[in-house]
Design a protein around this nucleic acid. Sequence first.
RNA 1: GGUGAGGUAGCUCAGUAGGUAGAGCAGUGGACUGAAAAUCCAUGUGUGGAGGGUUCGAUUCCCUCCCUCGCCA
Length: 311
Amino acid sequence: MRIPIILGPTAVGKTELLIELSKKYNFQIISMDSRQVYKLMNIGTAKPTEEENKLIRHHLIDYVDPEEHYDVNKYLKDSKIIEEKLLSNGIAPVYAGGTGLYADAITKGLVEGIPGNDFVRKALKNIDRNQSGYLYKILKTVDPVAFNKIHLNDSKRISRYLEAFMLNGIPLSKLQNNNQMDKKYQIIFLNRDRKELHNRISKRVDSMINKGLFEEVLKLYKMGYNKSNGSIRTIGYSEVFDYLDGTIGKEECIELIKRNTRRYARRQIIWFRRYVDSIQINLSDTDTKNILMIFSIIFNDFWGDNYGRKI
RNA sequence: GGUGAGGUAGCUCAGUAGGUAGAGCAGUGGACUGAAAAUCCAUGUGUGGAGGGUUCGAUUCCCUCCCUCGCCA
């Protein structure tokens, strides 16, 4: 029994494909998406609709309040619970999404026992604001390995390594494992020709707006959320907040959402390329019939003849 | 048809008193171990509209043509 992890950049067509596959195979999806976890954020995160969720069950979606803190560790814990539950019930789990960090955590594990600490973070942020470059100097003495990997301007990462040292007394870089990928998992990387992906992104953003993205964000805006909420730092939400604040115009806002989505997709692709052992499928040069055939081979290989298949 | 301005990177434009060109945006490559749709780093060769002339040498000067925009008929 192997567990597929289907990764692909935003708008590549994961949901459509999974729905097709669900007609032939009996499996459930463990979403691997850091934004679809939030309640009230449906249109902008391209969360599967209720109907889609009926066709194929998605887990780890729509279960966190937008003001709640969420991170990899929580994801890792929640997903492993669901994975085990599905397996013990004889249901094949399929991970699917686009958050690379989460895929790393699932397949390689995570350093344990060093949670983020808001108090420490705020303190570090204040120091950084007043004395630029100071934290970087401290990092050099505290965790030279990390110091060598991290750029002076990457204050977020500098703070994280300092935070870990302050809370633990051990350099975080010492605790980081170099674990190989767990062979239990197989990454399947769905991609498309860049130009086509860009067209799909543009169309999808337009359709989000038609479905009421601005109204959805306005609701959150009126509820008093702001960019200090991690959830709001999401493409489509952050830009509309700026529009509602009057910082940018509507047309500009839409263009920015598209641009930022394109850039995000590029970063995702760059991340997924690192999985050298992944099965890569370019959806631009394969038709649906072929893709279904490829997956039937993969799933047969992973699950055997009588696991997952619908008769 | 006449006349003026212009045609330079995917887009908007700059510049070269003749020595094959550079900004912004877009794009691209990369990093990533408890904020990750986040955060950070790096990255500009393009038939200078086409053809011809002058010149050691033309994107730059001259001629012809094509195209775009404005104005006049």
